[in-house]
Nucleic acid binder design. Structure first.
Lengths: 151, 151
DNA sequence: GTTAGTGCAAATCGTTTGCACGGTT
DNA sequence: AACCGTGCAAACGATTTGCACTAAC
């Protein structure tokens, strides 16, 4: 069984448990996020789906509704860009955080054990029941630093 | 000289250096953020100012413009709530991160040396020129956990 | 057949902008 | 006097919602 099949089954179970329906749109959105690793805004995702499935009618509202559902189900994750909206990505096997380049808006993923562990320590200190976290380091990526000197 | 006086002078210097003007509105916004420790949305700040200075006319646009200015000047800091906007706080002496309660939306501040240091390590690993970061731990605060059991 | 999901357009919310007037330098 | 800052309202972009219709169960 592929990873995608496993995720699909678990999504269907979540739907059933909550009296929700498994629709073509929901399947396509999930599949598209799975097949295209990367970070997408809802609009980007809509364009991608429309290109890939020209005969499917699908609206931006459904994208938003489904993304919300998938996020609550812990199948996908989002990262916020302030007033500039959110980007979504398939919730990969292992959690990671991001380096955000302020020049080219690129996201670089990283995973760091020390930080993960320290979060637990901090939560305990405040008797805080941690359900998630986001850690973003802002700055300029190597590529953009290089470009600057070439100008 | 009080801390506020020092900040005010440095703000005035930044304004002068950039050919900008020191206005009543800018002063009131800075003073209000300084005097009211806490995290405010632009709208909340506007209400607070209107209550405190009933004779002053001030619009939401000025709040946004001044908050942007103060943030670029490193006098205040912001934390983003995705599509739900940003909250601003006076840039206290030492940097800190936040525990965000998903139940009551309260922010709890913390400072953790291990995390701060580890960020430098990660940035170096990716040849990333770090200019800032945000780390938010999401979950349920102790108060809200208690409430849940009392219901 | 019942109920939830959909697309569409309108509505909403936070934020930004154009403009004529007023305040600071 | 020159020029920036202001309030106001309109504009904007991301997201949400109401509704009649359609599809999943």
């Amino acid at each position: 069984m592929t990873e995608y099949e496993r995720v699909l089954i678990s999504f269907k179970e979540i739907l059933k448990e909550n009296g929700l329906k498994f629709t073509t749109q929901r399947e396509i959105i999930l599949k598209t996020l799975y097949q295209n690793s990367g970070h997408f805004t809802p609009e980007e995702l809509l364009s991608l789906i429309k290109e890939s499935y020209p005969t499917l009618t699908i609206g931006i509202a459904t994208i938003y509704r489904t993304l919300g559902l998938l996020e609550k189900s812990n199948i996908i994750e989002s990262i916020s860009f302030g007033a500039k909206g959110k980007k979504y990505e398939f919730g990969t096997k292992e959690h990671h955080d991001h380096l955000v380049c302020l020049e080219c808006e690129k996201l670089i993923e990283f995973y760091d054990d020390t930080i993960e562990r320290q979060q637990e320590v901090i939560s305990q200190k405040f008797n805080f029941k941690m359900t998630g976290h986001s850690m973003n380091i802002f700055g300029i990526c190597q590529e953009c630093q290089d470009k600057k000197y070439k100008k």
